[in-house]
């Protein structure tokens, strides 16, 4: 097997501001993304999924830092790399798509110019070449009338078109890894469908890998090949989408599946997860899900359970992972 494109090992992220004892938001997170893979990171608000993604792109907010662990891209360690050389990777190697394109686009620069900037800077294109590239990328992302639209300012475009502009911008330098932070959450359902299709197609064409953060399991099911489920700063389950969603071994993954309505099974009652996620500052010792877990045993409250392999390529951080599978079958 070849080396993965991105390898995250024991990553911890925390707030360091104002105290000698940092508050950990993401703890001991490890995963690999290989070339062309579409990797989903699923979790609720506060699970640390967005910060994990931002750490890869070196886009952590002020006061939040990588405290430990490593992020290796194509064999190169990114943690501790000087900011200037790291910035050189963003664009030609790694690109990012945000939830709200309006905040990521420059409001006073025409969108065509914004797309052209990357190819000009990183691929050494001339002005004319880079504008042609921008229009080509806009056409590729399904923007009607790209020549005219290239002269528009971001505020003149609809939400769906702006998101396409962001995608065109991100893909303009042929990156090998595309980071997506809830790219369709702000969009309408028909437009979300179009954008997800587009992302899949473009990644298939260019062979780029996708790291896709979302709270919606159905979106992951449609878009990704592999996934990791995060809860309270930890990865609690990971594996292929097919494996994890059909045979969830962590009670949280199971709870997420049971609590969300499934369009294809309207008669199924929704089973909410009781309680709510712990506050980051006062996380309980042991498994963070223990206070809400229906399968909790005494040992859960003492130490964070290690990730165990329950099937080839399928891991769950639960000491009862085997029993949970049996109980699922029994239901």
């Amino acid at each position: 097997m070849t080396d993965p494109l991105l390898s995250v090992r024991s990553l911890s992220i925390g707030v360091t501001r104002g105290s000698t004892d940092p508050t950990l938001i993401v703890e001991d997170v490890s995963f690999d993304i290989s070339k062309g893979e579409r990797f989903g990171i699923v979790g609720e608000s506060g699970s640390g999924k967005s910060l994990t993604l931002r750490a890869i792109g070196d886009l952590l907010p002020r006061g939040v830092e990588v405290l430990a662990g490593s992020i290796r891209y194509n064999g190169t360690e990114l943690v501790g790399m000087p900011r200037s050389s790291r910035r050189k990777l963003m664009g030609p190697e790694i690109a990012m798509i945000f939830q709200e394109p309006m905040t990521a686009l420059n409001p006073v620069v025409r969108v065509g110019e914004q797309i052209a900037e990357g190819p000009r800077r990183y691929l050494g294109m001339t002005r004319a070449e880079s504008m042609a590239r921008a229009i080509e990328m806009m056409a590729k992302t399904g923007i009607p009338d790209p020549v005219r639209r290239a002269r528009a300012y971001p505020h003149e475009l609809s939400g769906g078109l702006r998101q396409r502009i962001m995608i065109a911008m991100a893909l303009s330098c042929d990156p090998r890894l595309l980071l997506c932070d809830e790219p369709t959450t702000a969009l309408d359902v028909t437009v979300q469908h179009q954008v997800l299709r587009l992302l899949e197609d473009l990644c298939d064409d260019s062979g780029a890998a996708l790291a896709f953060v979302t709270h919606d399991l159905a979106v992951v099911n449609q878009t990704c090949t592999d996934l990791a489920v995060m809860y309270s700063g930890h990865i609690v389950e990971s594996g292929t989408v097919r494996e994890v969603l059909s045979d969830p071994r962590h009670p949280y993954t199971q709870g997420l599946l049971d609590s969300a309505p499934d369009f294809d099974r309207p008669e199924r009652p929704l089973i909410p997860i009781p309680g709510f996620p712990p506050n980051v500052a006062s996380r309980p010792s042991g498994c963070p899900f223990a206070p809400r877990c229906p399968f909790v045993v005494e040992a859960c409250r003492t130490a964070m359970p290690p990730m165990v392999t329950v099937a080839p390529g399928h891991g769950a951080a639960c000491i009862e992972a085997d029993r949970i599978s049996r109980e699922l079958v029994a239901r």
């Binding site: 609720e44 608000s45 709270h215 919606d216 399991l217 709870g255 997420l256 609590s259 969300a260 309505p261 929704l270 089973i271 909410p272 997860i273 709510f276 996620p277």
Partner: peptide, 10 residues
Amino acid sequence: DVSVQATVLD
């Protein structure tokens, strides 16, 4: 959040 939605729907 998804896990909370269900209780409010109910």
